[in-house]
């Protein structure tokens, strides 16, 4: 009898071990490792982009954009930008959504210009620019504004179903698809370039406010603000890794080659992770 019980216990132990290792395998690809944290003096970073040489940081608390080198040495400060959010760097210009004024500002050298919008957003939280279009996360209108020349396309409407958005805060375009940080639906949504809903990502991963998104050739990176996590997915939505260390209310991510930079809104800092 004792032998039978022992065998049963051993079997149970093996079963539990296998189950646990199965759960871990969902995120066993620990490709990204923490490297260091860059501290800044009294900032509350909301947006971040790197061009491989500089960091461009939206300091919403102090109404300014900071340009630093990759070690965090401040090179220039662009003041008077009212609550700057998720910015975009394209062709040496920095596009900054000005949350309080509903404008998109362009930092061009030492000049600050204004982008001519065809449709006015209500609290632009994020912007993405490439050679043919500009996409804006229109926070209070629960939609993405896509402007191509004189043509404007609205993507999404207020709601919780597939294809609907609830306070979107960031947008990225890659592989001819539009990726949206659907913040208060706690997920990522993917649309085609014509605005058709393609996929929902992360809705099972207990994201608690998906504030920032970055998409590379292979991966989708999402900030979980309240959970203080980074979730990394394959483009098909498969979860690869969850990072929980050295993060303090992250709002945005920027990836350049094998280096990932993350803003810590509550930490007045940028955390740097490297791909192994």
């Amino acid at each position: 009898m004792k032998i039978v019980l022992s065998l049963l216990l051993i079997g149970l132990f093996i079963l539990v071990s296998c189950k646990n290792s199965g759960d871990d395998s969902k995120q066993t690809v620990k490709e990204w490792r923490f490297q260091k944290e860059i501290k800044f003096d009294d900032i509350a970073p909301t947006g971040l982009q790197t061009d491989g040489e500089h960091l461009w940081i939206s300091d919403a608390k102090n109404n300014r954009v900071i340009k630093s080198d990759l070690s965090g040495n401040v090179l220039n400060i662009y003041a008077g930008i009212k609550r700057p959010m998720h910015l975009s760097v394209y062709n040496s210009k920095v596009y900054v959504p000005e949350y309080l004024t509903d404008k998109i500002k362009i930092i061009n050298g030492d000049e600050i210009e204004e982008f001519p919008l065809k449709e006015k957003p209500d609290a632009p939280a994020g912007v993405f620019v490439n050679d043919s279009l500009i996409a804006i996360a229109d926070f209070y209108n629960h939609r993405i504004i896509l402007q191509r020349g004189n043509n404007v396309l609205f993507i999404g409407k207020e709601g919780h179903k597939k294809g609907e958005l609830y306070y979107p805060t960031d947008v990225s375009i890659a592989n001819n698809k539009i990726y949206v940080a659907d913040a208060y639906n706690n997920r990522v949504q993917v649309f085609d370039i014509n605005g058709n809903s393609l996929k929902v990502i992360g809705d099972k991963d207990k994201i608690n406010v998906a504030t920032g998104i970055e998409v590379t050739g292979n991966n989708i990176f999402v900030t979980d603000f309240e959970g203080s996590r980074i979730l990394i997915y394959k483009l098909n939505g498969e979860l690869l890794q969850i990072i929980t260390v050295h993060l303090n209310k992250p709002t945005d991510i920027s990836v350049y080659k094998n280096v990932m930079y993350v803003t810590n809104f509550n930490g007045s800092s940028i955390s740097i992770f490297k791909k192994l």
Binding site: A44, T46, R83, Y99, A123, F139, Y167, T211, F225
Partner: peptide, 15 residues
């Protein structure tokens, strides 16, 4: 009010 997008959104509306 923890999320900056909410907090500054509230500021925008009250302004």
């Amino acid at each position: 009010l923890s999320c900056p997008f909410c907090a500054y959104g509230l500021e925008k509306k009250l302004n």
